[in-house]
């Protein structure tokens, strides 16, 4: 703390910035237990059911350094450890900012925190091995079982990269939770679900499948942004439909929630 100058200039690592939309604490919905969650801004997909269109564009985030987000997480470290949980990087699409996301995960992981990456996997190729080494759990949002439906759901995406990423995770032994958003009339066809279930059942590191019922809670965000909400008239799935789809996954021996 004294004014002594450094003897020789130390090569400081470049300060990494990311576009961060927001941060939050949540329980049981962004991975196991109580978690500190950072939502990054920017996503290449335009899913029709997206409940956070405010995270689509990188410019809607604030520039934050990795240090800032690590410091914030350490505030919650004790709590999430005592409560049983960890930290999650979500979005937006975190792999749109792979360097920032990788560094964030690595720093959290070095602190001994349980880390989770919430991604569509569409940009899975951008996740390098170091990033995945620092990831204890991937929450992989598999949006459809067929390329056509994937395109219809996401507008801009392709299914293949997600499947490739999923196989890579399984091959390298990275645990994952498969997520599937159930939208009546869009992702509820039995054969669509069956394809996703087949994929999930073929991946050795899938610990569970989360079937997430579609909701319209993000509708007002579209209004605020002056956008039309494509599924404004779509109702959430009824309990019977939800039970059927969960059953399709369970039939293949998968743990379903």
């Amino acid at each position: 703390m004294t004014g002594r100058p450094p003897v020789a200039p130390v090569a400081a690592p470049p300060v990494l910035h990311g576009a961060v939309h927001s941060w939050d604490t949540s329980v049981g919905v962004d991975g196991p237990g109580t978690r500190f969650v950072v939502f990054l801004a920017g996503c290449p997909l335009r899913c029709r059911y997206c409940h956070s269109p405010d995270t689509w564009y990188g410019r809607s985030g604030r520039r934050r350094t990795v240090d800032e987000m690590v410091t914030l997480a350490t505030r919650y470290r004790r709590f999430v450890e005592v409560a049983g949980g960890g930290v999650t990087v979500s979005g937006g699409e975190p792999l749109l900012q792979p360097a920032f996301t990788g560094e964030l995960l690595r720093r959290w992981h070095d602190l001994g925190l349980h880390t989770a990456l919430d991604t569509s996997g569409f940009l899975g190729d951008r996740a390098d091995e170091a990033l995945l080494d620092a990831t204890d759990l991937v929450l992989l949002d598999v949006k459809a079982g067929s390329p056509a439906t994937y395109r219809r759901v996401t507008g801009t995406g392709r299914l293949a990269p997600t499947l490739r990423f999923a196989r890579r995770l399984a091959d390298r032994g990275t645990p994952m939770w498969i997520r599937y958003v159930l939208v009546p009339g869009l992702t509820d066809a039995p054969d669509e679900v069956a394809r996703v279930a087949d994929v999930a059942a073929g991946l050795a590191t899938v610990e569970r499948v989360e079937v997430l019922p579609f909701h319209r809670l993000g509708a007002h965000k579209y209004a605020q942004l002056g956008l039309a909400f494509p599924l404004a008239d779509t109702a959430p799935p009824d309990p019977e439909l939800l039970a059927r789809v969960r059953g399709q996954f369970a039939e293949r021996g998968l743990t379903v929630t």
Binding site: V27, G28, G33, T34, R78, F79, V80, V82, A83, G84, G85
Partner: peptide, 8 residues
């Protein structure tokens, strides 16, 4: 999770 939150 609720027990965990209470612990925390």
């Amino acid at each position: 999770n609720l027990a965990g939150v209470l612990d925390g």
